[in-house]
């Protein structure tokens, strides 16, 4: 009796979870392929006219191919900032774990501060203007590096602890210079956590809306997330196109998810066990 009750309970919970989490995505897909009149109804009906290609082209062409520009901008932003992040954060994580000094608590404090303190928006704009990086992709890349540094450092630091010190020492004895020890011995061994970092940070930076909204305004500077924002007001009568855009913006994270599910989960749940 108890067993049957439990079985039904888990089955019911599974079904509820399935409905709650899957329905919105089915809705997005259906809306994206409908024609304009049917999409205006905003219901769950099966599309009468499949307009996958037409809607796709219409969204891509909207506002002088804004979506293409946005994809290029987002790609540069994501690749650029993740590359810099991986290099500089791994260096910090390595030295921080290997060589504790009286300054280590200070560094740790700044790492925690970077995780918790909300960035001061207007002073940052003022500063970026002062050094000529406001409204530029370079500036935006450096901002993403600065804001995501703490998390990247934490991931690296945890992982360096699992690499035996003997590795560095053996390299030193073999005559390697400090830079070689790091870049040719330790860094290659950190590859698993580097993959985790790349995947987690790229998804985060690609999906970032707030920071480009503040620091990268202006025509031609749109990132993918900002196209959604501007299409939201422009397409409020063309729901099919709005949802086609949502679908297109969702595809890159979906691909990453399909291929790197394990690394993402590992990265995001790091610290769950140690606290």
């Amino acid at each position: 009796m108890n067993l049957i009750k439990r079985y039904w309970l888990t089955a019911l919970a599974s079904i509820v979870a399935l409905v709650v989490f899957v329905t919105p995505f089915i809705f997005i897909i259906l809306m994206a392929v409908k024609d304009r009149q049917q999409a205006a109804l905003r219901d769950m009906s099966w599309p009468i006219n499949f307009q996958l290609v037409e809607n796709f082209l219409a969204v891509v062409q909207a506002r002088d191919y804004m979506l293409i520009t946005a994809y290029i901008n987002s790609t540069i932003l994501t690749v650029g900032s993740v590359t810099i992040l991986v290099i500089v954060a791994s260096m910090v994580g390595f030295v921080l774990q290997r060589h504790p000094t009286k300054w280590t608590p200070v560094v740790e404090f700044f790492v925690m501060a970077g995780l918790m303190i909300p960035p001061a928006v207007v002073p940052t704009i003022w500063l970026l203007q002062g050094i000529g990086l406001f409204k530029t992709l370079h500036g935006m890349i450096l901002i993403e590096v600065a804001y995501n540094m703490s998390f990247a450092v934490i991931l690296y630091r945890q992982f360096v602890a699992t690499i035996p010190r003997e590795m560095d020492e053996a390299a030193i004895i073999d005559g390697a210079k400090p830079l070689d020890v790091f870049f040719r011995v330790v860094f290659p061994m950190m590859w698993p956590v580097t993959v985790t970092n790349i995947v987690v940070q790229s998804v985060g930076i690609f999906n970032d809306f707030v920071n480009p909204l503040y620091y990268l305004p202006g025509r031609g500077n749109e990132t993918v997330q900002l196209t959604l924002y501007s299409f939201q007001s422009q397409f409020n009568t063309q729901y099919n196109l709005l949802f086609m855009d949502i679908l297109l913006v969702t595809i890159p994270p979906l691909l990453v998810f399909l291929f790197f599910n394990r690394q993402i989960v590992a990265g995001l749940s790091a610290g769950a066990i140690k606290g």
Binding site: I84, I87, V88, A89, M91, V92, F94, V95, R98, H99, T101, V107, F110, G114, I117, P119, A120, V122, P123, T124, W126, L127, L142, I143, V145, A146, Y147, M149, V153, D168, I172, P178, V181, F182
Partner: peptide, 28 residues
Amino acid sequence: KDLRYPSWFYLPAGTIYFILFLVPTVAS
């Protein structure tokens, strides 16, 4: 030992963090 784990490894990350995060925070 200091040479093996050079402190300047903090420098690139620290510079970006200091200029773009700490300075605005203090200025705020």
